[in-house]
C-alpha cells in the first residue's frame, strides 16, 4: 500500500514536468523558421499564395501561437497527438510502430554497457595499477574518446563491407520473410553494430565510475571489519564491496537514459534503423511538427518512467533509502 501511494505520487509529480516540456518544445518549434505547409509546398515544387493560405487555415496554422498551443494541449490531454501529414497516419500509430526498435536498441545498449562496464571496472579496481588495469583503463579512454558516428562508419567498413559478417543497416533482411528463431536471430544480427556504437561510450562511463567507486569502497571501515572476520578477497568483493560500489553507477544509469535517447538519433540514422531516433531526424527535416511533438512526449514519458525505475532499484540496493 505505501508503495502504491508512492507510485501514484510520482505519477502526479510527472504531470507538470511533462506539461512544461511540451509547452517549451511547442514554443521552440514555433520559433524555428518554416512549418509543415512550407515543407509540403516545397515538396510540391511551389504553389500560389492563395492555396498556401487555404492550407494554413485548414491545419489551423493561421491562428495565433497561443491558440494553437491551447488546442494542442487540449488534444494531448486526451492522448490525441494529431495527424502526421508526412506519413498520412495518426501520430500515435507512427510512434508505436517505431517505439519497439528504439526500446530494443536502448535496452540492449544499456544492458551491454552496464554489465561489461561494471565487470571491467571492478576487475580494473581489484588489480589497480597493474598491466590488466592499464589495458582496461586505456581501452576505456579510447571508447570514451571515440564519437559514435565515427565508430559506426568504421564498423560498417570493417564488418560489413570488408568482412561481410554483419548487415549494413536496417532491422531485418528485406524480403527474406524469416519466422520464429530465424527472425529473432536476424534482428539480433542487425542490432549488433548499432548496439556497439551506441553503448561503447556508456560502457566507458560505467567502467571509469565503477573502478573509482570500488577503489573508494575498498578503503572503507566495514571492508576492514570483514577482513578482520577472516573473509577472503572474493567474498570481500562480492558481498561487501560490489553492492556498495554499485550505488553511484545506478544513479548514473538513470540519468543517462535520456542522453542515450539522444544518441540513438545518430546511430539509427546511420544504420537506417526504423526507430524513434531516425523518425525524429526525418520529422525535423520535413517539419512534421505533430510527429516531432509526439516523439518529445513519448521520450519524456520514457525518461520519467526510467527514473522512477532507477529510484526503485536504488531503494532496493541501498537499505538506508526508504521510499517516501
Amino acid at each position: 500500500m505505501p508503495f502504491l501511494i508512492y507510485a501514484l505520487r510520482r505519477a502526479l509529480q510527472a504531470v507538470p514536468v511533462i506539461l512544461m516540456i511540451m509547452v517549451g518544445a511547442f514554443l521552440l518549434l514555433k520559433l524555428a523558421p518554416g512549418d509543415t505547409v512550407d515543407a509540403l509546398v516545397g515538396d510540391m515544387g511551389g504553389a500560389d499564395a492563395q492555396f498556401i493560405a487555404r492550407l494554413r487555415a485548414e491545419y489551423g496554422l493561421d491562428q495565433p501561437v497561443w491558440v494553437q498551443l491551447w488546442r494542442y494541449l487540449a488534444k494531448m490531454a486526451q492522448f490525441d497527438f494529431g495527424w502526421s501529414y508526412v506519413y498520412e497516419q495518426p501520430v500515435s500509430v507512427v510512434l508505436l510502430d517505431r517505439l519497439g526498435v528504439t526500446l530494443m536498441l536502448m535496452c540492449a545498449s544499456l544492458f551491454f554497457a552496464f554489465t561489461i562496464g561494471v565487470a571491467l571496472g571492478a576487475i580494473a579496481a581489484r588489480r589497480a595499477y597493474s598491466v590488466t588495469d592499464n589495458v582496461i583503463s586505456t581501452l576505456g579512454l579510447v571508447f570514451y574518446a571515440t564519437p559514435s558516428f565515427f565508430l559506426s562508419l568504421m564498423m560498417i567498413v570493417v564488418f560489413s563491407v570488408k568482412l561481410g559478417w554483419l548487415p549494413v543497416g536496417g532491422i531485418r533482411t528485406i524480403a527474406a520473410f524469416y519466422t520464429g528463431w530465424d527472425h529473432v536471430l536476424d534482428v539480433a544480427r542487425h542490432l549488433v553494430m548499432p548496439t556497439a556504437a551506441l553503448s561503447l561510450i556508456y560502457l566507458a562511463f560505467y567502467l571509469r565510475l565503477m573502478r573509482a567507486s570500488v577503489l573508494e569502497v575498498a578503503e572503507l571501515d566495514f571492508v576492514r571489519t570483514a577482513r578482520a572476520k577472516g573473509a577472503g578477497e572474493g567474498r570481500l568483493m562480492f558481498h561487501h564491496i560490489m553492492r556498495n560500489a554499485l550505488l553511484p553507477v545506478v544513479t548514473l544509469l538513470g540519468l543517462q537514459f535520456s542522453t542515450l535517447l539522444g544518441g540513438s538519433v545518430v546511430v539509427e540514422t546511420i544504420f537506417s534503423l526504423p526507430g524513434l531516433g531516425q523518425l525524429a531526424y526525418q520529422s525535423v527535416i520535413q517539419r512534421d511538427m505533430n510527429t516531432l511533438m509526439g516523439i518529445i512526449f513519448l521520450s519524456s514519458v520514457v525518461v520519467i518512467v526510467v527514473n522512477f525505475l532507477t529510484d526503485l532499484l536504488y531503494a532496493r540496493l541501498d537499505s538506508r533509502i526508504e521510499l517516501s
Binding site: R224, A228, G230, H239, R243, N244
Partner: peptide, 23 residues
C-alpha cells in the same frame, strides 16, 4: 584468514562505519 575472526577477533572504534550498511 582462518585465524582472523576465529581465534583472534577485533572490535573497531566507529561502529557506524565499521558495519556494512547494506547487510
Amino acid at each position: 584468514r582462518r585465524l582472523r575472526g576465529n581465534r583472534m577477533a577485533m572490535v573497531f572504534q566507529e561502529p557506524m562505519t565499521a558495519l556494512n550498511p547494506q547487510k
